[in-house]
Design a protein around this nucleic acid. Sequence first.
DNA 1: TTAAATGCAAAGCTTTTGCAATACT
DNA 2: AGTATTGCAAAAGCTTTGCATTTAA
Lengths: 152, 152
Amino acid sequence: MTAPHTGPALAAPNLGAAVSALRARGFRVSSARRLVLESLYGAGEPLSAERIAGGLEGRFPVSDLASVYRNLETLEELGLVRHFHLGHGPGLYAPAGEEKEYLLCESCHELRAVDPSELDGARTLIQEELGFRARFTHFPIVGLCPACEGSA
Amino acid sequence: MTAPHTGPALAAPNLGAAVSALRARGFRVSSARRLVLESLYGAGEPLSAERIAGGLEGRFPVSDLASVYRNLETLEELGLVRHFHLGHGPGLYAPAGEEKEYLLCESCHELRAVDPSELDGARTLIQEELGFRARFTHFPIVGLCPACEGSA
DNA sequence: TTAAATGCAAAGCTTTTGCAATACT
DNA sequence: AGTATTGCAAAAGCTTTGCATTTAA
C-alpha cells in the first residue's frame, strides 16, 4: 500500500508499456508482478486472481495468491488494471484500456459484451437527465435479454 | 430449499399481505420468518442479513444469521423480497415492489437513489438499440456524480 | 402427527493482513 | 545496502451447509 508514487490513471497498450510505466513511477518489476501483467495481457480475456495465481492452466508458473491480489491492487491504483464483477463469483481483472461493458440476463444468465459506443446513447441521456456520467464497467447491466424478454 | 410450492414473483404491499402470501402458498409462518419480514417492512430501508439477525439495534429480537439467510432466500424465490449490491459489502435486502435504482459515484462514493421512472428514458433507448430490457436494480450504475464530473 | 423450519456448529469462498525472508534497484 | 516486494500462514468477511431438535399446521 505504501507506494513510491501514486498518480492519475494511465492505461498501457501492451506489456512493455506497462512495465515501463511501472519503472517510470518508481515501482519495482519483480517476477511475481511481471507474471500478473503477462497473464493479463496474454489471456485476452478477464481473469480472476485465482486463475492468475494458478498459472493460467499451464501457460504461466503457479504463484502466490496473496501476492497476486496485492499486485492487482497496486496495478489498479496505478491505472494499469481494472477490475469488475459479473455476478456473485470472484472479481475479474483486465488491463485498463480496451473496456467492454456487459449485459447480463437475469433469466437465462447469458452474458453479452458490448462496445462502450453501443451504450453512448443511454450514457448521454442519463447525463442530460440526471447529470450523472455512467460507466457500465464495474458491474454489468442486469435485465432481460431479447429472447427472455420475448417469452415473458 | 425444498419448498411446498414455487411460483412466479409476487410483491406484497405490507407485512400482512406478505404473511398471507406465504400461507396461501403453503409456507409456514414461523417466528423467525415473521421476524425477517417485520424487519424488512419496518426498517424503511434496505437491510443486510447481519443487521436483521442483530435485531435492528434493539427494535427486534436477535436471531440466527443462518436462518435469516435461509429465509431471505425463500422469500426471494417467492418474489416477496429482492436483494441487491451497492459495492463490496454484504448484500442488501428489501421488500419487493417499491424498487429504487442507484447511482454510485466512483470518485466520492456518493450514493443516489432514483425512482425507476427517472431511468425510463435510458431503459427505452437501450431496449430500442440493443433489444435488452435493463433493470438497474441488482447493481448500481457506477460513474461520476455531477460534482466529481465537473472537477475531472 | 409430520415435515418444514430452526439453531448451532462447521465449512466454503473470496479477499486481506502480519511478518520474517528475499530480491530488485 | 536498503527497502519494496514476496511467500507463507492465518484471519477476516460474507454466505452456505449438515444435522439433530423444535414447531407450525
